[in-house]
Amino acid sequence: MKRRTFTFGATAALAVAGCSSSNRFQTYRGPEVTSVVVNKGARSLYLLHHTEILKGYNVRLGFAPEGHKEYEGDGRTPEGTYVINRRNPNSEFHLSLGISYPNREDVARAAALGKKPGGDIFIHGQPLTYRPKGGDWTAGCIAVKNPEIEKIYAMVRDGTPITLRA
């Protein structure tokens, strides 16, 4: 009897684990995402096919979200037009898409202040090691929920322009 109970319990546990597992790497076969727009003031990110909004998401920004990023450690999210230039499937934040910050102007602006411009600005999911308690919390990135970054990661290709607006 104990053996039958153990076998049933083990089978049930495996079945539940199989049902709850999520494939982080989704497939997208819809219209091409031709641009990404982030409206910092509204805390929103839009994936566009030309002028048509394909998807919209609520976002969290750098812990000091007002204004353009000026230097490393200022907690601001950049403003301007960049491109998605890399992807990290092994991110500390579930998945992440890199943004081409800093550009030449960003480097010059930081240098004029005697500072480094910083870098490693991403659209990413939630951290793997801790849970933020709401509000803006990143060091300058754009954060979304994990199921959302899975969709964004599948839809957005490297080279896609991203515009970050105040």
Rank of each mutant, 00 (worst) to 15 (best):
A154T: 06
S22I: 15
A17Y: 14
L48R: 08
Y130K: 01
P31Y: 00
F63V: 10
L97H: 02
A110R: 10
K40H: 07
I142E: 00
T7R: 11
R3M: 13
A139M: 02
A139F: 00
R157I: 10
G98V: 09
C19N: 06
K40W: 07
Y130A: 01
E105H: 08
M155C: 12
H49C: 05
G98T: 07
E148M: 00
K69M: 02
R76C: 08
P65Y: 07
V16Y: 13
H68L: 06
N146W: 04
H124F: 05
V144S: 01
A143T: 00
A139V: 00
A42P: 09
T27F: 05
G73C: 04
P147V: 03
G125Q: 03
Q26S: 01
L128I: 07
L128Q: 12
E52Q: 13
E105Y: 10
S21T: 15
R109P: 06
R24D: 09
T11S: 12
C141N: 02
K116D: 01
G30V: 04
D136K: 08
I53V: 15
N90C: 04
K2A: 08
K69S: 03
T129N: 12
S91G: 04
P65K: 10
E66F: 09
A166S: 15
G56D: 11
V107H: 07
G18Y: 11
H50E: 11
T81L: 09
S22W: 04
S20P: 00
G73L: 05
N39R: 15
H124G: 05
Y82Q: 10
T81M: 11
S20G: 09
E66G: 10
S96Y: 02
V144P: 02
T163V: 11
S100Y: 12
L164I: 15
L14H: 03
P65D: 10
G62W: 04
G118S: 07
N23V: 03
A10V: 15
H49D: 11
V144D: 01
T27W: 00
F63I: 09
G125R: 02
T138N: 02
M155E: 13
R43A: 12
L48P: 00
R60Y: 13
L14R: 06
D158E: 15
E148H: 09
S21D: 11
C19H: 08
Y82R: 05
G134V: 08
T27P: 00
E32W: 00
G119D: 13
F122L: 06
V38I: 15
L14C: 14
S20L: 15
E92T: 06
T5Q: 13
S100C: 13
Y101I: 09
G114A: 11
S91F: 02
D136H: 15
P78A: 03
F6G: 00
I84F: 09
S20N: 11
P117Y: 09
G56R: 14
F93N: 02
P78Y: 02
